[in-house]
Design a binder for these strands. Structure first.
Lengths: 213, 213
DNA sequence: AGAGTTCTGGACCGTTCTGTCAGGAACCGT
DNA sequence: ACGGTTCCTGACAGAACGGTCCAGAACTCT
């Protein structure tokens, strides 16, 4: 009973997320949020509470999706683990350019902007980073099991390096580095992995076929 | 003649730079700036003009110092070029932790926050990135000349990868990754370089002596 | 010392911000 | 149709914002 809401909460959260990713926390006003979400200030406060609460909510939704997306990229059988690591790098390179407007990763934005309003937000972001790192580590270990990566190599160290490369490519992309250079970076990073002789064809610089997704 | 200024412009710029690095552009108010610089709003506007003008000025000063600092790390004779690349990575890892308060790189902050107020600022940032990349490329080529890096390797690609790793380590550091993990990332990245057999001792995981700076 | 000049700090203005509120519109169940 | 409930819109208050201005302090030169 009563008048039903004229908006879909999840849709609003998603639209607001885009706004936050575009302008950051401090750079986004409540009016911007309301306009992006297509509702009035009153409805917004009634439905989501504070600006920081809404930010936390969008951040959590983003982290959920992001973790799942990377997990989907990285999960799979051992024999294609190395391909998946390559896909991870290629997708990292394309991440920004795939977005129509150049919104960045919300996690990176949170970290660099230094949004300290919420201890919960920091915890959520750390969790997201740890989970992605976990997916990476598993994938690296799978490639090691399959004999594509040196079994002696430091899997967590490689994962963290891959994390760093991902974040770094985003910065370079937002700074204007073009798409082909980014893909070259991705390939270069891939070649820097401790590939076994078995995984590294003699003369071909592209050791693994990349999916054209 | 007349009353001399009670502040040193350069000192103020430096202090304000720290403030911008801490809170970003949108997150820093003119009052914050005045307090950080130790002068009143009137003096501030008289000496520097707009908030965005002052930001541009601090950004330029920061870029100057940053370019010079990296150039100093990377310039030198061919026979120590590989060591210098290692130093670049190690210093990247320590960058954030060396700062007492966790201020980040102003260039990264500018790029991620998406400060679009000034076309000049964007140009300056791009120039800074290109110059650092140039220093890196020269150093890589020096290491190639000396036979420490594979002569067939793609020097610009490696440089851009090293740039990305640098930026990425900053993000991870600000997200809370501890110092030892960061140094492991740096070492991992170094081992990913296309080292020649001559540069890669058989069993030692640390191929080059790192200065303890 | 006094005149002229420059700098300083805080008051001030108009705008924008966050967060609240009330009156009216829209809807459901009966 | 109609009461009860929920939602929406626009207005509102208080604070913070960017930017300006001026009266007085501080200094140099004569």
């Amino acid at each position: 009973m009563g008048r039903p809401p004229g908006f879909d909460k999840d849709k609003v959260v998603q639209a607001v997320e885009r706004q936050f990713r575009r302008s950051g926390y401090a750079g986004t006003s409540v009016d911007d949020i309301a306009k992006a979400g297509g509702l009035g200030r009153g409805s917004l406060y009634a439905a989501f509470g504070d600006k920081s609460k809404l930010y936390l909510r969008t951040l959590e939704a983003y982290c959920d999706r992001n973790e799942a997306a990377w997990a989907a990229v990285l999960e799979g059988p051992d024999d294609t683990a190395l391909e998946r690591l390559h896909a991870y790098l290629v997708k990292s390179a394309r991440f920004v350019h795939d977005d129509p407007d150049g919104l960045g990763c919300m996690v990176t934005g949170f970290v660099i902007e230094g949004v300290d309003h919420d201890p919960q937000a920091s915890a959520r972001v750390r969790q997201a980073l740890m989970r992605i790192e976990g997916s990476l580590t598993e994938c690296v270990q799978a490639a090691q099991r399959h004999g594509d990566l040196d079994a002696e190599a430091d899997a967590p160290g490689i994962s963290q390096l891959l994390m760093a490369i991902n974040r770094g490519m985003e910065v370079l992309a937002k700074a204007g580095l073009d798409a082909v250079a980014l893909e070259r970076v991705a390939d270069q990073a891939f070649e820097g992995l401790p590939l076994t002789a078995r995984a590294r064809p003699q003369q071909a610089p592209r050791p693994v076929v990349s999916d054209a997704s």
